[in-house]
Design a protein around this nucleic acid. Structure first.
Lengths: 225, 225
DNA sequence: CAGAGTTATGAACGATGTTCAGTGCGCTGC
DNA sequence: GCAGCGCACTGAACATCGTTCATAACTCTG
């Protein structure tokens, strides 16, 4: 149990190791807290007690509690990404508009299922606001973009006529619409719908959007501003 | 300028008058603060200073700051209701599916316009959470229901086959989807789309939903579960 | 093993919402 | 008109936050 029993472990490595262990302990404690009591329950003193360190130690591995919440949110995003299954379907590309619509519905239902299974964690994803003037880190928006690309693939199959920028934009809007249905539908203070009811609503509307979008392909959209 | 110059003014009336004046001053100050700096800037001490009273006086007319925020939110809802124009169109009922879709698009664009014109006020509507375990007041959900009924009318015209409960439910989900597009689209931390771009996206998707919903009227929805 | 350098500690600071004993004011009865 | 009473307002005080920093404890070097 001596300090330097492993050869090649420079002192600075061991320091980094301790830092990483503390970081992990804090992250785990924060994750438990958010999952069990929500983002608002994330308090420095409780966190330090749970992680077995002093309050000041938190600020040696995270600039502030916002960064810690952001780190938890990244884990939530990864969790959701895993819940969606492998990015590429084994059978390759999506063959037709019907399959594309089915895939969009599948993604929407998976989103709803995840939000229903981890309500507080998922709530933290959108409730958390960085301090004013501060931008979200690059790795965070990159992770977001990775998830959006899951929508872009079936959408491109649904609307092969769309140029790529428009497709990316529409994919994001499609996500936003789905998010709205899930977020307000699960919101206890606003709609508080049962998940089963919400599933039906979500499928109805996502399928309606898919159908309606294919109908617009013939360029009959008379709303050209 | 004597105290009791108006006959019939009982002392308890004057007390109530003073309370109402204080309430109004606080509400106005809170409204200014939220409109200019957002819900997070609502602080008891600043509020008292702006309204010209002591901090403790706030708690003689509002149970807590949450109630004050809720009162501001009610005003915002009323403001939005007014921005939507008269509830009943002068020409009476909506005649066909095309007019119904147009009305849904109009409502969605009005929602976006309002959110864009009063971003912080509108943000406060959804960011504000009552303390856990506390339900939203009845007058608040009633005001919400009044707004939802604006969607139910064109939706009923679009889908006359739907029973009233399903129509109410679908109207709420339609609102949720629209809200998602607007909320995430305007969110500086997530999408931060220009309002003009967002207008196009919103119209595309609302029209798609309207088209898709009419297509589902023939009962070909193969996802009956 | 002594000393230098680094890291963790937790009391302290400033800001927050909320409370409450004290104060001042207005109304009431003479 | 005035004494006395009761209520409402005051603002200092309290509890609880996030965050900081002087100090203690510890680790590695020579």
């Amino acid at each position: 149990m001596s300090v330097g029993d492993r050869p090649g472990n420079a002192p600075e490595d061991r320091r980094e190791e301790r830092r990483a262990a503390l970081r992990e302990a804090l992250l785990a404690a924060a994750e438990r807290t958010i999952a069990a009591q929500g983002l608002a329950a994330l308090r420095a003193r409780d966190l330090a007690r749970e992680a077995g360190c002093a309050v000041g130690a938190i600020y040696t591995v995270f600039p502030d509690l916002d960064a810690l919440a952001l780190a938890v949110n990244l884990r939530t995003l990864n969790l959701f990404d895993a819940a969606l299954g492998p990015a590429e379907r084994p059978d390759g590309a999506i063959d037709g508009p019907a399959a594309a619509a089915d895939e969009l519905v599948r993604l929407g239902l998976a989103y709803l299922a995840f939000a229903g299974a981890h309500p507080l964690r998922w709530d933290a994803l959108f409730r958390h606001r960085p301090p004013p003037g501060q931008r979200a880190p690059d790795w965070y928006v990159a992770e977001q973009a990775r998830l959006f690309s899951r929508i872009e693939r079936p959408l491109a199959a649904l609307r092969p006529d769309l140029p790529e920028p428009e497709c990316r934009l529409l994919a994001r809007s499609l996500f936003s619409a789905t998010h709205g249905i899930v977020a307000l539908g699960l919101d206890e203070q606003r709609m508080a719908l049962p998940v089963a009811t919400l599933r039906v609503q979500l499928e109805i509307l996502v399928r309606a959007m898919a159908t309606g979008l294919t109908a617009q392909v013939s360029g009959d959209c008379r709303s050209g501003t």
